[in-house]
Simulated scan of single mutants.
Amino acid sequence: MGAENRFALMALNQCNHGQALMLVDQAIERGNAENVERALMLKAAILRDRGDTAAAEALYPAIDAAWEAAKEKSLSASRRERDIQMFIDIAQAERHALGLDATCEASAADQGRD
């Protein structure tokens, strides 16, 4: 998964979408094929989590290409959706465990949406 992706997931868990996006962009820029594929999936999850579904879906061709480069096989739409949702589910579960709002709405209202 790579260090930047792990830190990005931690930032997502804390509703820090801006930092999470910065970290996944670093992973995409510097990572090996597998880390790039994970970073793109995570980036789509971050965007979807903050309500930007169109931007998340715009990443699908890059996700599919990165998956194929890393795994040497095609990515099904159902697998892509499952993997993106997995990151969102992890973040929401962690937020719940930390006593945060699972959807980041309370955090966004307190801090201004990032």
Rank of each mutant, 00 (worst) to 15 (best):
S76M: 11
A69G: 08
T53Y: 13
A70P: 09
A97M: 04
F7C: 03
E81K: 11
A27V: 02
A33K: 13
A65Y: 11
C15K: 10
V24Y: 02
N5E: 11
L98D: 10
Q111W: 09
G18A: 13
A106G: 04
L75T: 09
S78A: 14
I90P: 03
G18W: 03
A8M: 04
D25S: 09
D89Y: 08
E72F: 08
L21Y: 01
L98I: 04
N5Q: 09
R113D: 10
R113T: 09
R6H: 08
D64E: 15
P61H: 03
A58C: 00
A55T: 07
I88C: 07
H96L: 07
V36K: 10
E34A: 10
A65S: 14
G99M: 05
D49H: 11
A97T: 01
R95Y: 00
I90N: 13
E105V: 11
A8P: 01
M86P: 00
Q85I: 00
D49I: 06
L40W: 07
E81P: 00
L75W: 08
E72W: 00
R82P: 00
S107K: 00
L98P: 01
G2T: 14
K73E: 15
E105T: 13
R38Q: 14
Q26S: 12
G112D: 07
D101S: 13
L12W: 02
D83I: 11
L40C: 07
L98E: 08
A33E: 14
P61A: 06
N35Y: 04
C15Q: 11
L98F: 06
E94N: 14
A102C: 03
E68G: 02
L23K: 02
K73M: 15
E37S: 11
A108Q: 04
I88D: 05
A11E: 06
A45M: 04
M10W: 03
L9T: 02
L40K: 06
T103S: 15
A54G: 07
M1Q: 13
M41S: 09
E57M: 07
H17V: 09
T53H: 12
A44I: 01
L23D: 00
W67Y: 15
A56D: 04
D114E: 14
M1F: 12
H17M: 14
A97I: 01
R6P: 02
A11I: 02
F7D: 11
D25R: 08
D83V: 12
R80T: 03
Q111A: 14
A54T: 13
D89A: 14
A62K: 15
E34I: 08
Q26N: 13
A45Y: 03
L98T: 02
L100Q: 12
R113G: 05
A62D: 15
I84D: 02
A106E: 12
S74A: 15
E94A: 08
A91Q: 06
V24F: 04
R50K: 15
Y60E: 06
H17R: 08
L9Y: 03
D110I: 06
A8I: 04
K43A: 05
I90S: 09
Q26R: 11
G2N: 15
L9W: 00
R79F: 12
A62I: 05
R95I: 04
W67P: 06
I84E: 06
L21A: 05
L23W: 01
A93Q: 15
Q111L: 14
A108M: 05
Q92V: 02
L47H: 03
V24K: 02
A33T: 09
A70C: 12
